[in-house]
Computed example of a mutant assay.
Amino acid sequence: MTELELIVVFALLSGSTVFFGGLLSHYFGSHVTSGLIKAEIIHSSTAFGGGILMAAVALVLIPEGMIALSIVPMALFFLIGAITFFFIDRYMQRKGGAMSQLLGMLSDFVPEAIAMGAVFSQNPQLGMLLAIIIAIQNFPEAFNAYLELSAHYSAKKCLIILFVLSFSGLGSALAGYYFLSGMPRTVGALMLFSSGGIIYLIFQDIAPLSKISKNWIPALGACIGFLVGMVGLELLG
C-alpha cells in the first residue's frame, strides 16, 4: 500500500469507533434495565472517558505542544482554548444542551488525527500506532457522547451524527499530511488549544457527571482510563 492509502485506512479505523461506540451505547440503553447497574455503568463510563481525555492531555497533547512552542505562545494558546470552550459551554447551556462528552471527544480526536497525518510522512509506524490509540480513546468517549445526545435527539439522529463525525478523523489526517507535515509549531499550537478546552470540560462537566453518592467505582474508572493512556504512550515508545 502507498503512504496515502495507509493514512486513509488507519484514519478510517481510528474514526470508526466513534460510530461503534455510539451503537453500543444505543443497545446498552435498550437492553440494560436495572436502574442501579445502569447508573453505575453510565457513571463509570463517563469517568473512564474523562480519564482517557486527561491522559491524552497530560501524556500527548501538552508535552508535544510544549516541545513545539516557547513559553509565551504555549501559555497563550492553552488559555485561548480554555476561554473558547468556556464560552461554547455557556452557549450550550443557554440552548438547553449538554454536549461536554461530544466536545471533549472532538477536541481530543481532531488534533490527534491531524498529528497522525503530519507524522506519517516522517514515521509511518508511529502514525499507525497513534491511529490505534485514537481508536481506543474514541470508543468510550463516543459511548458517553451518545448518552448525552440521546437526551435531546432521537436514536436515529444520534447515530447519524456520530456516523458523520466518524469521518472527521479522515479529513483531519489528510489535512495534517498535506498541509502541516512541515509545520510542527502550528500542530503544537492546535494541541495546546485543545488541551485548554479539554481540561475545562473535564472539571466543569465530565467529572461532576461521573459522581454517584456513596459509590466509589466511577473514580476507579477514571484511573483505569488514565492507565489506558499511559499504556498507549508506552506503545508509542
Rank of each mutant, 00 (worst) to 15 (best):
Q137Y: 12
S121R: 12
A222T: 04
I134D: 02
G171L: 11
V18R: 03
C158I: 03
Q122M: 09
F109M: 10
V119L: 11
I212Q: 10
L236V: 03
G171M: 01
I71M: 11
S150G: 03
P218E: 03
L147Q: 13
G197R: 07
A55W: 10
H152C: 02
Y177P: 08
E5T: 13
V228T: 10
S100Y: 05
L236C: 05
D205P: 00
W216T: 15
V60M: 12
V164C: 11
Q137P: 02
G182P: 03
I132Q: 03
A151F: 02
L209Y: 01
L103W: 08
S34Q: 14
S121F: 04
G176A: 03
G127Y: 07
S14L: 08
L236K: 01
G21P: 07
L13R: 07
M128Q: 14
G176C: 05
L53T: 02
I133N: 12
S30T: 11
D205F: 03
E148L: 06
L227C: 08
A39Q: 14
S14D: 04
E64P: 00
A98G: 06
F226I: 03
I206R: 11
Y27W: 10
G197P: 12
F163E: 01
T17Q: 07
R90K: 15
P208H: 02
I42P: 00
H43Q: 12
A68V: 03
S70M: 04
S168W: 06
A173D: 09
V231Q: 04
S107A: 15
M105G: 14
A113D: 07
G196K: 07
P73R: 00
Q125N: 13
L170E: 05
F77C: 10
F10L: 09
S30Y: 08
I224V: 15
G15M: 07
F78T: 13
K38M: 02
Y27V: 02
G97H: 13
A11L: 03
Q204Y: 06
F77P: 03
S30A: 14
V110F: 08
N138H: 07
A142E: 09
M105W: 02
I132F: 15
F167L: 13
A189C: 04
G225S: 04
A98M: 08
S154A: 08
N138G: 06
L236F: 03
S210Q: 02
D108M: 15
F109K: 07
G169W: 06
G49R: 02
Q204C: 05
S150I: 01
G221M: 07
I136M: 06
L180F: 15
G15S: 06
I7L: 14
S210V: 01
I161H: 05
L76G: 06
Y178F: 15
A189D: 04
S166R: 11
